[in-house]
Amino acid sequence: MPFRPKDTFKSNADSESTKERKRIHHNVQASSYWLPNDDIEQDRLNEMYFALKHLYSGQLLPKVKEILDFNSNLKVLDLGCATGAWILETSVEYPNCDYYGVDISSNFPALSPNNTHFMLHNVIDGLPFVDSYFDYVRLGHWTSNLKEVEWPPFLKEVYRVMKPGALMLNLEIDTMNRMIESHP
């Protein structure tokens, strides 16, 4: 069983939401995550997923497929899985793997394949998985999700649940507008 016994972790992730400025947000006071979790945000996240899928011609970056064999029985963790779109599509294309999605908001799909598992959890409380379980850990757009002081313990937990030789992908988009000066 990949999950740690319930008495070894506590989560303050809460399925209840609060309305703030006419948008719906999660109700986890200790979280740094500031974006809403309403239908508008879920649509935005899905659109971003499909745009990236198109950009990279699939769910997996080519380099990831070079390193890992997704036709074998990999254990895959998607932290901050949002709507679960990446997990759902990847689990259909690569059905031999087991997929675990964790998010602070419970906007998970109502129906999903048997090789997918979704969990409402605040990662600041640690990761509720046994040591050295995952072959691949995916972090999507995490730059603004954590405070600077939260990164070291978070990464320590991520490394703890990764098997030796596992791969972690931290996918970020550079949205900064930068002016480049040209000097003769």
Rank of each mutant, 00 (worst) to 15 (best):
E150G: 11
L35G: 11
F154Y: 06
D135Y: 02
D131T: 09
P109C: 02
I40G: 15
E41R: 03
P153K: 00
W34A: 11
K75A: 13
Y99E: 01
K6Y: 10
F50M: 04
A51W: 10
D131P: 07
G84Q: 00
S105F: 05
V123A: 11
N145W: 04
Q29N: 13
E148I: 01
Q59I: 04
K10T: 14
F154A: 11
P36K: 00
G80F: 00
S105K: 01
R4P: 11
A166H: 05
F50V: 02
D69E: 10
L61G: 08
P62D: 14
Y49E: 08
L79V: 10
R44Q: 12
V28R: 05
K19N: 09
K156T: 12
M168A: 15
D7V: 12
E172P: 05
A51I: 14
E150Y: 08
V130D: 11
E20Y: 10
T8I: 12
S31C: 04
M1H: 06
L167S: 07
V158T: 13
Q42K: 07
P95C: 00
D38W: 01
G165D: 09
E172D: 08
Q29E: 14
N37L: 02
F50I: 01
P5Y: 08
K63I: 10
H54A: 15
P2V: 03
E66T: 04
S17C: 15
R178N: 09
V64W: 04
V137W: 06
A13V: 08
Y33N: 04
P36Q: 00
K75V: 07
Y33V: 03
E20T: 07
V158D: 14
S15Q: 14
